[in-house]
Design a binder for these strands. Structure first.
Length: 425
RNA sequence: GGAGAAGUGGCUGAGUGGCCGAAAGCGCUUCUUUGCUAAAGAAGUGAACCUCAAAAGGGUUCCGCGGGUUCGAAUCCCGCCUUCUCCGCCA
């Protein structure tokens, strides 16, 4: 959520800032609800204060005395009224909160204005995307693909989008995870291994609930959700806590499987590894003070770029435009690798600064130099998502003999130069 | 899973219906004193929200969470959560 004071003091500024986001909000209605709520709260508190002072008078009267008994009768009416006003105040507050939560974060002024994904700006491109990839094939068309990533048996066991990685492919996934974690460690991120199911409070704090409920797998018995990203448990690590300024910035990384129902998003371009219900990802998370978050976003993006460069995969960086950045985002970069077989760009990372939006909702604060608690800033970025990186490796590194060359940076864990089967003809 | 016990401020811990946002101690901050340190003494020491142009000040809420009883709840009742002990089960 945004800062309510900003909304009250500069509603036009807020209105203008979110005008280009794709989320519609009636600012005037929110302001009216806020005014109504405050009026009700004041009334209720006055009534309660009256009741309390009358009550403490009563405490001095001898119990059971005629004055006492008379006073009790009098107090009944006051108490009933106070209660009534309190209920009204609570209702007004709930109405306001619901409306207030529908206001998205304000885009940073540096975010390009645009309506949708077509107006994202390509900030930079790395690697030779025009290079000849003479042997490239869509990864799902590689002859031995299904023997290494077994979708059919995944369907039998679980359902579509839950493949088995078999043998050397399983080891390649593990090598990628290790490589990503080691990259993160070298960049100063402390590793955590979080729970991969979370409760409703956590999912609400990071913004998955209430809007994206349909995207998560739910355990109704326990009221728990399978995480769609490690961002959820890792960010919640400090939920409702006050950090010390000298702890900041805090860098954390986490490897987890991620689960996404992807309801309604099946169609073209989702073959093979392009979109799965379960996938592995290393996530990078930062908590910063209010001053340095934009600078930290650039560092975060650079860290992820460095990892892609070591993998020698061509990629591009998109500056997401106002119409395409997410609800809680102030600024967002998407990183896409070039998959030469499909001749498509695949999103493998999204690096985002939520400024204080998510932290306010999650109750994450730090003490400023005067010792006053201030809302922290949170950031995160994928570093990286495995399946699409794997898809690009398979496609771009396909050799003349039909095998795939394993990137040098994975040799430490993989100890195998090629995977797959050479052609026999 | 069964049976018990407990959840109070940064920590320990008192408090079983009213003057308790909460004793006392520890810790922490500031000040005083003393070559330094230590020690001693004094004062202060949570958060959210509302009000106020701001500050000051005032008010409301918070004793695990949510309901209830009552004029009044940390204190009584109900539900839930968590922790501990014993038993059972189990990677």
């Amino acid at each position: 959520m945004i800062d309510i004071k900003l909304l009250r003091e500069q509603p036009d500024f807020v209105r203008a800032a979110i005008a280009h986001k794709k989320f519609k909000t009636d600012i005037d209605a929110v302001l009216e609800l806020d005014a109504a709520r405050r009026a009700k709260i004041t009334q209720a508190e006055q009534a309660r204060a009256e009741q309390k002072s009358a009550n403490s008078e009563m405490a001095t009267l001898p119990k059971g005395s005629p004055e006492f008994i008379a006073k009790v009768q009098e107090m009944k009416a006051i108490a009933a009224q106070a209660k009534e006003l309190e209920v009204a105040a609570k209702e007004a507050d709930e109405a306001f909160q619901a409306a207030f939560l529908s206001i998205p974060n304000l885009p940073d002024p540096t975010v390009p204005v645009g309506k949708g994904e077509d107006e994202n700006v390509i900030a930079s491109t790395w690697g030779d995307t025009d290079a000849d990839f003479p042997y490239a094939l869509p990864h799902f068309d590689i002859p031995w693909f299904e023997s290494r990533i077994d979708f059919a048996r995944g369907v039998k066991t679980t359902g579509a989008g839950f493949p088995f990685y078999v043998g050397e492919m399983s080891r390649l996934v593990r090598a990628l995870v290790n490589f990503f974690l080691e990259e993160a460690r070298q960049n100063g991120y402390e590793e955590v291994l979080p729970p991969i199911v979370v409760n409703a409070e956590s999912a609400t704090a990071t913004g998955q609930l209430p809007d994206k409920e349909g995207q998560m797998y739910v355990d109704d018995n326990e009221g728990l959700y399978l995480i769609p990203t490690a961002e959820v448990p890792v960010t919640n690590f400090y939920r409702d806590e006050i950090l010390e300024a000298d702890q900041m910035p805090i860098y954390r990384c986490a490897y987890t499987p991620c689960f996404r129902r992807e309801a309604g998003s099946w169609g073209a371009h989702v073959r093979g590894l392009n979109r799965l219900h379960q996938f592995d990802k290393v996530e990078l998370v930062k908590w910063t003070d209010a001053e340095s978050s934009m600078e930290e976003l650039e560092k975060l993006r650079e860290n992820v770029e460095g990892t892609l460069q070591k993998l020698e995969l061509p990629y591009r960086v998109l500056r997401m435009c106002t119409g395409d950045i997410g609800f809680p985002h102030a600024k967002q970069y998407d990183l896409e690798v070039f998959a030469a077989g499909q001749k498509r760009w695949l999103e493998v990372s999204s690096c985002s600064n939520f400024t204080d939006f998510q932290a306010r909702r999650a109750g994450i604060r730090y003490r400023d130099p005067e010792g006053k608690p201030v809302t922290a800033h949170t950031l995160n970025g994928s570093g990286l998502a495995v399946p699409r990186v794997l898809a690009a490796i398979l496609e771009n590194n396909l050799q003349a003999d039909g095998r795939v060359k394993v990137p040098d940076c994975l040799q430490y864990w993989m100890r195998q130069e090629f995977i797959g089967e050479a052609k026999v003809d």
